[in-house]
Design a binder for these strands. Structure first.
Length: 135
DNA sequence: GTCGGAAAAG
DNA sequence: CTTTTCCGAC
């Protein structure tokens, strides 16, 4: 009793807030939204389930069901009308070395977040769940 | 489709 | 630094 109302679930697991999860728009300077933020944003909304969705079975794995639409949405967000899946996927490929994503080989349009070093947390800034790196 | 080098933009 | 653009290779 007497617990403050309106407080969301607190992050589980002794969370630290390091690098890339917090590089949102609130970063010092002027950093734009990053692609993996955008992907996560789409993934959490039901209205985009026909465009991009989590793959059942493997946690962190997602399938782009409509590459053209994802590219269009991404292009709109970044004011890059000429965006297409070919370019978007190149940006995704740069994440391989950054250890944010990797490809699920053999599965079309399927990628996977590196949950080996990720942890789920509630992001108080957006009121959404984000994955951040475990420290 | 997917990969990754290279150059360029912001 | 991240992402965009272009593109040859597989």
């Amino acid at each position: 009793m007497g617990q403050p109302l309106g407080s969301e679930e607190v992050p589980r697991g002794g969370v630290a807030f390091p690098d890339w999860a917090y590089k949102a728009e609130s970063s010092p300077g002027s950093r734009q939204i990053q692609l993996w933020h955008f992907i996560l944003e789409l993934l959490q909304k039901e209205e985009f389930r026909h465009v991009i969705a989590w793959q059942q079975g493997e946690y962190g794995e997602f399938v782009i069901k409509d590459p053209d639409e994802v590219a269009r949405l991404w292009g709109r967000r970044k004011c890059k009308p000429q965006m297409n899946y070919d370019k978007l996927s190149r940006a995704l490929r740069y994440y391989y070395n950054k250890r944010i994503l990797h490809k699920t080989k053999g599965k079309r349009f399927t990628y996977k977040f590196n949950f080996s070093k990720l942890i789920i947390v509630n992001c108080p800034l957006w009121g959404v769940r984000l994955w951040i790196r475990e420290k």
